[in-house]
């Protein structure tokens, strides 16, 4: 069996987090000031730290609000890569793989897992760079397919439903005033013109009232 890797997140602002272990059993970890160790499913610890650091440059935590770090984006990305998406379960992967015009979309053979593995290598000693150095390293690769993927996944991890491991403590949704899924907006949809209407934020799990099975949790 391969060595088990963990991503250690600072507990600041985490509160109670739901953690999925490698065998898909869930448990709650109460942080109480202690760092939280989250078992990784695909990324190695170093890779996860680079993903987390790069995502934090894409959506930084600053005076305009929390960013990729608080939302746990790296955990989201690790789970997506470990799941069917990461191994291209739903992509047409028949050969031959040939280059075509850009409008025909990604035609490569590499799966998201392989793209990350290679792409993270290309960032070199990213963790040893200061913020400006990290920005420069990302600027150098910002036209690559890997960067486009990382940027997209960072947004996904910021604003997904928390069942997917990101948007921790609803940091992303609260940041932009998205209330999450709601059964009904019937009484409000044609009111509040010109003013912000921000109902209490709820998750899909709270709304549905039962356990849900995101697609990355293969059964």
């Amino acid at each position: 069996m391969k060595r088990r890797h963990f991503l250690t997140l600072s507990a600041t602002g985490l509160g109670t987090v739901l953690v999925y272990s490698l065998d898909n059993k869930t448990f709650s970890a109460v942080a109480q000031g202690q760092p939280v160790r989250i078992p990784l499913r695909f990324l190695t610890r170093t890779e996860a730290l680079v993903v987390a650091a790069a995502a934090s440059r894409i959506v930084p935590s600053n005076d305009s609000g929390p960013g990729a770090h608080e939302a746990g984006v790296a955990v989201y990305i690790d789970r997506q890569l470990a799941g069917p998406y990461g191994r291209d379960r739903y992509r047409y992967t028949q050969e031959p793989f040939e280059d075509g015009v850009a409008e025909l979309g990604y035609q490569g053979k590499a799966t998201p897992r392989q793209i990350y593995r290679e792409g993270l290598k290309s960032l070199g000693n990213f963790l040893h760079l200061d913020a400006a150095g990290q920005d420069l390293a990302l600027t150098r690769i910002q036209t690559s397919f890997f960067f486009a993927m990382l940027r997209q996944h960072t947004i996904e991890g910021m604003f997904c439903d928390p069942i997917h491991g990101g948007n921790k403590n609803l940091a992303g949704w609260k940041l932009i005033g998205f209330p999450g899924p709601r059964f009904s907006n019937l009484d409000d949809v044609d009111k509040h013109f010109g003013e912000s209407f921000r109902p209490k934020v709820t998750t899909l799990r709270e709304m549905a009232g039962h356990t849900l099975h995101p697609s990355e949790e293969e059964r």
Binding site: Y90, R91, Y92, E98, G100, Y106, Q107
Partner: peptide
């Protein structure tokens, strides 16, 4: 042109 698959 040679056609390529819509892979997604």
């Amino acid at each position: 042109e040679r056609a390529l698959p819509l892979r997604q």
